[in-house]
Amino acid sequence: MKRDVSVLLDVEVHAESLLEFQIAVAHQPGVEVIESLSFELGGVRRTAKEVSGPHGSRIHVLRCGAGNLRTEYSARVLGAARPEPPSDYDLALYLRPSRFVESDKMLGFAASEFGCGIDDPETPGRVAAWVADRIGYLPGSSAPSDSAVDTLLTSNGVCRDFSHLMVALLRAVGVPARVASVYPPGCMPMDFHSVAEAYVDGGWQVFDPTRLAPRSSLVRIATGRDAADIAFLGNHGGDITVNGLWVRSFVDGPLPYDDHIHPTTIN
């Protein structure tokens, strides 16, 4: 499948800051990426340092002073990713509670709803369907500091809230789970998107409880414990305002169908 993705990010930097961008397509075996990335501060080209993260994630680090920063990225993505074999460390890490995924606070609730899911390959699908049925997709209904517990209590959220809740419930019943940021062809409204991945039958399977985009069309950007690991923009030390964010992603040809039931991976 050939996919084209792009993003334009307009940021006002009010004081000197160290910025971290996670907008570039992840490095994955089997995937060819033809891409361009540029940063312009007040019309002057700047160069960022690329830092390699886990699971092929790429962080572009830029220290800049005050001014208007314009960031543009585009990529043509060819091929399909070969599955990444989980390490023993991954399986331990993605069972632990984290900042936005307080699985330790959901042990009793998750057990009463889903039982123990360690040896049941059907558990992630049941949890994804439960989250899809119980949580309403409502833009603006959550704050950046909201966690999985907040989503469970309010029953509303956006994609990151859906994936946080699903991952929290899975970890609570003993299934290693993580989140991924992706470019999502077919998603409406178009934006960066967050999905959940669960360890099933020896590998990572992707689930999207929002059901907003076909999973086989997704393009991986970053992977981690929760939103703190996969944020498209991090700011350290300064003050910034995001003036605008425009994301585009589409496939060459018809959009693939997804029943959101059968197992699949991020390609």
Rank of each mutant, 00 (worst) to 15 (best):
D120V: 03
G140M: 06
S103I: 06
S142A: 09
M106R: 14
A110V: 08
T123R: 04
C116A: 14
S142R: 14
A143M: 07
D133Y: 05
Y137C: 00
P124I: 03
P139Y: 12
L107V: 13
G125N: 10
C116H: 12
R134I: 00
P139H: 13
A143S: 07
V127E: 04
S112N: 05
D133N: 12
M106E: 12
G108H: 09
I135S: 08
V131H: 14
D120W: 13
K105V: 00
D119F: 00
L107R: 14
A129R: 13
A143T: 05
L107W: 05
F114M: 04
I118L: 09
S103N: 14
R126G: 01
M106L: 15
P121V: 04
A132Q: 04
S112W: 10
A110T: 12
A110F: 11
Y137F: 06
R126W: 02
S103A: 15
R126K: 08
I135Q: 10
P144C: 09
E122P: 00
S142Q: 08
A129H: 08
P139L: 07
D104W: 14
V131C: 08
A143L: 09
C116K: 12
D119Y: 02
A132C: 04
T123K: 02
K105D: 07
P139E: 15
C116F: 07
V131K: 13
P121R: 12
A129K: 12
E122I: 00
D119T: 06
A110Q: 10
A111W: 06
R126M: 02
A128Y: 05
S141T: 03
I135C: 07
C116Y: 10
A128N: 09
V127D: 03
C116Q: 15
R134S: 05
I135N: 08
G117W: 06
G125L: 05
G117F: 05
D133S: 13
D133R: 15
A132E: 03
G125Y: 14
A132M: 01
K105N: 06
Y137L: 00
S112H: 09
C116I: 04
D133T: 06
K105W: 08
E122M: 03
D104P: 08
D104F: 12
F109T: 11
G115E: 10
L138C: 05
R134K: 11
M106N: 14
A128D: 06
E122D: 08
I135W: 02
D119E: 11
A111Q: 12
F109Q: 12
L107A: 10
P144N: 13
E113L: 04
E113T: 01
A132D: 04
F114D: 05
V127W: 03
F109S: 10
S141Q: 05
E122W: 14
A143P: 00
A129Y: 02
R126A: 03
D119P: 00
Y137N: 01
W130A: 08
F109K: 13
V131F: 07
P144G: 09
D104I: 05
G136N: 09
P144V: 03
I135F: 03
R126F: 02
D104N: 15
A129M: 07
